[in-house]
Nucleic acid binder design. Structure first.
Lengths: 166, 166
DNA sequence: TTGTACTTTCAGGAAGTTTTGAAAAAATCG
DNA sequence: CGATTTTTTCAAAACTTCCTGAAAGTACAA
């Protein structure tokens, strides 16, 4: 396989993977493109490589910056902005965990908290509250585990899990 | 808050959470409904509670059974089928990990393998292959870690992570 | 200040996904 | 075996999400 085919395949696969993770296809592809690029790319480069519009490129690059997965690179004497991807996979995953935890897990825990206070003494209410509390317990544990994971550095992570696996 | 409001809120929140996880809203809501129900429900019950069509209910229940998150319950003397959800959160998460690993991580590792064999000696190709190999290394580690997690039981999981957190 | 190079915004259209509902198939019963 | 109940299928409709491209906005240099 040559480089052009390889790049193409990687962009397609990474984009498809993104779709099943609540990330839109284009955003995942831009990230992929920047990851395999040896140097920073401008918005125009991204538009051309992925055959997408300026608006689309701009919005998704912005979103990637929000997630901490892509950075601006300003060059002296160049008005144009260039972009580079975070390439350390551990940092990529860590940022995704941080963002999704904040956007999804934490609000859910808050809702579960409110729901634990549902009143009533019939079987259905009891079952409901019991189930909610179970889910909340599990979610809170997951939450602290993720906090620990976030604080830990890559080597620690790999080391610990390698021991677990062996 | 009373039971009806609580149920409604839980169904909404769980459904919304599903959307950001590549699970469709209705599938997540059916799962939520069955989790908080003290007894098995029929397709008609699900249709009525969630105000959805027969076809929609049937397709999503089917998908949930595929994922191992819902089971059929047959009753002697009843022609109708009833459904119950897996309520042990650890098992729920474990099943989701198993399915997504199979559907997403494993195919991606296969693609990355193919991409490691891209040929060429310019800087761009080298960078490409290097990045792919990094991603593959990380993915393979994640893969084995998940295998370990799947084999482990709930207590072990909680125990180990609780130690990590302390 | 004005011209230029670039970035951001957003309404409307395109593409993709989910839902419906009716018809077909399957299962069960007398 | 019908008759009846329940489940499954699937084309079309409804809905949602994403993308385009043109216009507006911003920053900078001269």
């Amino acid at each position: 396989m040559n480089l052009t085919e390889g790049k193409e395949k990687f962009l397609q696969s990474w984009g498809a993977l993104g779709s099943s993770w609540g990330v839109n296809r284009t955003m995942a592809q831009i990230h992929a493109l920047l990851m395999i690029s040896p140097h920073a790319l401008s918005a125009d480069d991204v538009m051309e490589e992925l055959k997408i519009s300026r608006g689309n490129a701009n919005m998704n690059i912005r979103a990637l910056i929000d997630w901490g997965l892509v950075f601006k690179e300003l060059r002296a004497g160049e008005r144009k902005e260039f972009f580079v991807a975070e390439k350390d996979m551990w940092k990529v995953v860590k940022n995704i965990i941080i963002q999704r935890k904040k956007r999804e897990l934490e609000p859910m825990i808050k809702v579960l908290d409110e729901l634990s206070s549902v009143e009533g003494d019939d079987a259905e209410t009891e079952e409901f509250v019991k189930t909610i509390k179970d889910i909340k317990l599990f979610s809170s544990k997951a939450d602290s585990t993720l906090d620990t994971l976030i604080k830990a550095d890559s080597n620690w992570f790999v080391g610990t899990f390698m021991k677990m696996i062996k």
